[in-house]
Design a protein around this nucleic acid. Structure first.
Length: 112
DNA sequence: CTAATGACTCGAT
DNA sequence: AATCGAGCCATTA
């Protein structure tokens, strides 16, 4: 139920705003929220987003562009697979041209 | 209440 | 450049 999961919703909202073919980082989302929540919490929120098709967690990676959370997917390869489907090249669980596919969540906040 | 963990990030060595 | 450690915030035990 929706109780104290305010910050979860905030993360979901941003992740849902991530356009196809784009990716972002946990720290970027945390910063978009106001730098209050640690980047770790963002990952924690994603962990709660398991099963939510509205939350493209596969577009969220760490600062290195590494698919750190792919092991939490079902199956884990699905994360890399989806990224490749969007036109993103992934090698060794690492996104190639990560900066090129990087999307700043702050831009979505700016629209608000 | 204290302690430990976690899909992270940055700074120092 | 690579590796190690500490910081950060929220949840769970």
């Amino acid at each position: 139920m929706f109780k104290n999961t305010d910050f979860f919703e905030a993360v979901y909202g941003i992740v849902r705003l991530i356009p196809p073919g784009k990716v972002t980082t946990y720290g970027a989302i945390a910063q978009a929220l106001g730098s209050k929540s640690g980047a770790r919490m963002v990952g924690w929120a994603m962990n709660a987003s398991h099963g939510l098709a509205d939350v493209p967690a596969h577009r969220v990676v760490n600062r290195q562009g590494l698919l750190t959370g792919k092991m939490h997917f079902n199956p884990p390869d699905d994360m890399q697979r989806k990224l490749e489907e969007e036109g993103i090249t992934v090698m060794n669980d690492q996104i190639q041209q990560f900066e090129q596919h990087f999307w700043n969540p702050s831009l979505a906040i700016q629209i608000e």
